[in-house]
């Protein structure tokens, strides 16, 4: 066992932890973006709210979710430990600015990561925590006429505050009652400052992953003349362009919609 301890206490071991947690968080981003695209469905949040409910009530996903939270904490903690160690490695700094060519993002992972951490805390307390542990979220009732497949929605007031979800069929109409996270999303994204904060955070995601994704592969030692260029283009196009744009589009679109109303 001490062998493992020694391994993860070594400089390379700590980097390994950073790389593995980082890549795990990257895979989560894909899933998260995929799910959140439901926000763009014009169904008054029906799909999105069901999805939110599913995520918080399906045990395997709950396990993975806790793993994810742990990863975030470990990733941040190790980043902090490594940063402190790295600072100590150069107690007297240079008088001149280091001009050695290196990408801006690679030199500012700590700053980017801190922005992201702040973002995650706010993001999670506003949505995840509010959804799970507070009673701030209102409810909605969706009625789908099974003959015409038309859905209408109205606000719903549950009998007990612990109500989560119910599905029933009456008169060929499917009635789904569920927490209306969508409403909170729409409400939050109508605040301009909030939207700006989100967009900035997505820039941070972009630059963090522009370096982080390929760096994780380097750290793991997975470099190869043939495959490394593929890793680079995935890191650049998927993680630093498509995913941040996808996420940033949500607050922007909702904000624009809110101003249009």
């Amino acid at each position: 066992m001490s062998e493992f301890k020694q391994t993860f206490n070594s400089s390379l071991g700590k980097k390994l932890i950073m790389a593995l947690t980082g890549l795990f968080l990257c895979t989560f981003l894909i899933v998260h973006l995929g799910g959140n695209l439901l926000l763009f469905r014009n169904d008054d949040g029906f799909g999105f709210n069901l999805y939110a409910n599913f995520l918080t009530h399906f045990p395997p996903i709950e396990v993975i979710a806790y793993l994810l939270y742990l990863s975030i904490l470990v990733h941040a903690l190790y980043a902090l430990i490594l940063t402190i160690k790295n600072r100590k490695s150069r107690p007297v700094s240079y008088a001149t600015v280091n001009k050695s060519p290196a990408t801006w993002s690679s030199k500012n992972m700590g700053l980017l990561g801190s922005i992201l951490f702040l973002f995650i805390v706010i993001h999670m307390s506003d949505f995840w925590f509010a959804y799970k542990y507070s009673h701030k979220i209102v409810y909605k009732e969706y009625r789908t006429d099974l003959a015409t497949d038309k859905t209408t929605s109205v606000a719903y007031n549950p009998v007990t505050p612990d109500f989560e979800k119910s599905v029933s069929v009456e008169n060929n109409v499917e009635i789904v009652r569920v927490k209306d996270l969508h409403a909170r999303v729409a409400n939050s994204f109508s605040n301009l400052l909030y939207v700006i904060f989100y967009v900035i955070a997505m820039f941070a995601v972009s630059f963090h992953l522009l370096h982080g994704f390929q760096s994780a592969f380097r750290t793991l030692g997975w470099v190869h003349r043939k495959y490394t260029p593929i890793v680079y283009s995935i890191g650049t196009w998927l993680f630093a362009v498509i995913i941040p744009i996808g996420f940033a589009a949500m607050p922007v679109v909702y904000y624009l919609q809110s101003t249009g109303k």
Binding site: K85, N86, S89, A102, T103, S215
Partner: peptide, 20 residues
């Protein structure tokens, strides 16, 4: 690697300045 760590060098963050 053990000796490198013992000497108090920092950790690699793959910035590429060394290579450059």
């Amino acid at each position: 690697v053990a000796q490198m760590d013992a000497e108090g060098f920092g950790n690699c963050t793959n910035t590429g300045a060394c290579e450059a």
